[in-house]
């Protein structure tokens, strides 16, 4: 089974004892995937399953290093047992404006993800979740591939994902889950 939805929403589960959990909903509001971020791990380890029973794993997102300013996360299709790509956080750029690179399986950049505007990014760092984050995923020459928008909600983190361009949807799911797990924690 492979994930191929072009529109979905990632919602953080409120009551999770250890680590973090996320549900992925399709446009009809049905749960299509469940993600679990392992607790007590210095190296980030996030798994995406088809449902909350965790019987079928879809995707694995693993950090390369324990402490890494420009952290890179490899994404593996669990069914195929193949790496499908990676996401690398641009450490310095992200101080003022969240910025990621999406890499192919050869570790070559294929797209970049950035917050929508530098001014809003600056405000968000002071007003927290009062200004929801919006991200644009674009090819290196600037063509839109997907948008990822955080819904305004001070209590529950919801990230809406809309894939519009020609890109592996699994990579977008992976970076969406990463944003929900990593960027949300960094505030």
């Amino acid at each position: 089974m492979s994930f191929n939805l072009r529109r979905f929403m990632i919602r953080r589960k409120i009551f999770t004892v250890l680590g973090a959990s996320f549900h992925v909903y399709d446009p009809d509001g049905q749960v299509v995937a469940f993600s679990r971020q392992k607790a007590f791990k210095l190296k980030e380890d996030i798994r995406v399953y088809t449902d909350e029973t965790k019987s079928t794993e879809l995707l694995t997102v693993l950090a390369r290093q324990v402490i890494d300013f420009s952290a890179a996360y490899d994404m593996v299709d669990s069914a195929e047992q193949r790496k499908i790509g990676a996401a690398r956080r641009k450490g310095w750029s992200s101080i003022l404006r969240d910025s990621w690179e999406l890499l192919d399986e050869q570790d070559q950049p294929i797209a970049q993800l950035r917050e929508d505007s530098a001014f809003k990014a600056f405000l968000r760092r002071f007003l927290s979740n009062l200004i929801p984050q919006h991200y644009h995923l674009r090819t290196l020459d600037g063509h839109d591939l997907a948008t990822l928008c955080v819904r305004f909600n001070p209590f529950v983190y919801k990230l809406e994902v809309d894939v519009t361009g020609d890109i592996d949807v699994r990579l977008v799911l992976g970076i969406g889950v990463l944003l929900a797990a990593v960027e949300r924690r960094q505030g």
């Binding site: 390369r64 890179a72 490899d74 593996v76 047992q81 193949r82 790496k83």
Partner: peptide, 24 residues
Amino acid sequence: PDTLAGGIVNCAACGRATQVPGLR
């Protein structure tokens, strides 16, 4: 390349995801 240390690479022979030892 050591930029992939600690990460995952597809094996050049069988294509299977393979863990790369970390530098630390």
